[in-house]
Design a protein around this nucleic acid. Structure first.
Lengths: 127, 127
DNA sequence: TTGCATCTACGAATAGATTCGTATATTTGA
DNA sequence: TCAAATATACGAATCTATTCGTAGATGCAA
């Protein structure tokens, strides 16, 4: 039950999780400097968000030195899975295919990507 | 600018839009009876939500008779497009392919659906 | 050592979404 | 006809997310 909540992070939390998933371990300042590129909120805002995420159990933190170090506790793939399934249900009436087509249709996709998907589908059919 | 906001309906608004997109025209009661199956909130809650959606321009309403009749003004495909693109960016770091694979991997997809997607990809490659 | 920069903690303001209670008007059926 | 059912309107409570200011602690450099 605790986990179920965490699978649906807020938008701000997701932005931070993205960074932690990519970087591994980060200080608040690390995260904040990356966030600043796309939005302009203060340092203490980022700090507060990460503190809340820690309370919720979304991240772990190492407080052994003055500057705390954070890591994502939430599993990236599980979170992605949960969010994508939710979107299929809520936005595409349960049809994964429709979502996929919508996604590939507009969001300019390279040929390499398309081929990768084709291969993936072939493997999927074999089962 | 007005439209840009509407492309991102809240979760409750999206639930209602889904119903309106499917049914076409609905009264508040129509919508509420469908919503009730999956959640338990009062009738006046649904009413209020739909009134707010009308204020925002998400729906039109015909008030010629006592019981008002609502219709979606928001375009379904545009909304889907917007939401799916947003998810690709926010959750999958901009990789449509990764999202597609994640979507098809778990969300049990029928062979028919997979074949439909394959055909779609073939057409896409030809361009 | 002392002052400046940097860090955490925390309370509180703000904004938006959601929910419901109540008042009031209209319809309808016994 | 008139009482019950059903509609809308609307204010307000509640909840959550986001934001920031300020206070106090710590580290560092001149």
């Amino acid at each position: 039950m605790a986990e179920a909540n965490q699978l649906k992070p807020t938008e701000s939390e997701l932005e931070i999780l993205q960074i932690l998933w990519k970087k591994g371990s980060c200080t608040v300042r690390d995260v904040h400097e990356i966030l600043e590129k796309n939005k302009d909120s203060g340092y203490t805002t980022t700090l507060k968000l990460m503190q809340i995420m820690h309370e919720k159990g979304l991240v772990s933190r190492d407080t052994s030195s003055k500057t705390h170090i954070y890591q994502a506790l939430q599993n990236q793939e599980k979170t992605q899975q949960h969010l994508v399934n939710k979107m299929i249900d809520n936005v595409f009436n349960g049809s994964a295919a429709r979502m996929v087509m919508q996604a590939l249709g507009n969001h300019t996709t390279s040929k390499d990507e398309i081929n990768a998907i084709k291969e993936y589908l072939d493997q999927l059919s074999k089962k």
